[in-house]
Nucleic acid binder design. Sequence first.
DNA 1: CCAATACATTGACTGATGTCAATACTATGA
DNA 2: TCATAGTATTGACATCAGTCAATGTATTGG
Lengths: 114, 114
Amino acid sequence: MSHPKTISVDDAVVSCCAPLSDGAMSEIEAGDMAQIFGALSDPARLRMLSLIASQDEVCSCALEGPLGKSQPTISHHTRILLEAGLIIGEKRGRWMWWRVVPDRLKVVARILSV
Amino acid sequence: MSHPKTISVDDAVVSCCAPLSDGAMSEIEAGDMAQIFGALSDPARLRMLSLIASQDEVCSCALEGPLGKSQPTISHHTRILLEAGLIIGEKRGRWMWWRVVPDRLKVVARILSV
DNA sequence: CCAATACATTGACTGATGTCAATACTATGA
DNA sequence: TCATAGTATTGACATCAGTCAATGTATTGG
């Protein structure tokens, strides 16, 4: 039910993007940004993201080996990155192909500018 | 014992800085970066950081009100941001003054570039 | 030295999180 | 239609993380 078949980034909307020094962050924005940073706060997910970012697309099946985690754990982590809007997935055949969402990374980087 | 009197950023050393797309991230670097992102993954800490970043210096006592948290909780969060190298503190009189570490924010932003 | 103040630490509790075995789902190929 | 393969979901468990009351520490002012 959660995690619908049609995969999109709309789930994780971010109020958005003002640099940290632009005055006190609202509670809404803080919550949204915290979700994104939370997705980035696990070593396995960071390595996963770097593996995906290093190539155009990466299949889920190509992540188990390098990360040394079980298949359900890989699925769990891809879902968290998806819900944070950091990756997007497309199912082709039996394989799930993942790619990063550069714009979302830019949003995060912008927050940290100054 | 932990959290020594002389406050520095040396605790949280980061192997450092290559963009995500520069090949698979090492386990060491992933762990270090995950610590930093973990420090950023809480709404209270993000608002705290934005409050500090919006001014030159902010006293701990000036954080309790806006964040609506108890004094021990504020102390807990400043410590986590400190250990992540994101803020630095100086005690003057009875007050603890905090400021952000721009270079550390740049390190994080660089990771997210592409 | 004493009282007050600002902050840190400890201990306890609750809720979130990472992990995997077992199982269900879905698309392919025979 | 059936067996297989790639993913997703569920359930259970152990650990981590956020919170605050109570207490400790250090600095100031009297």
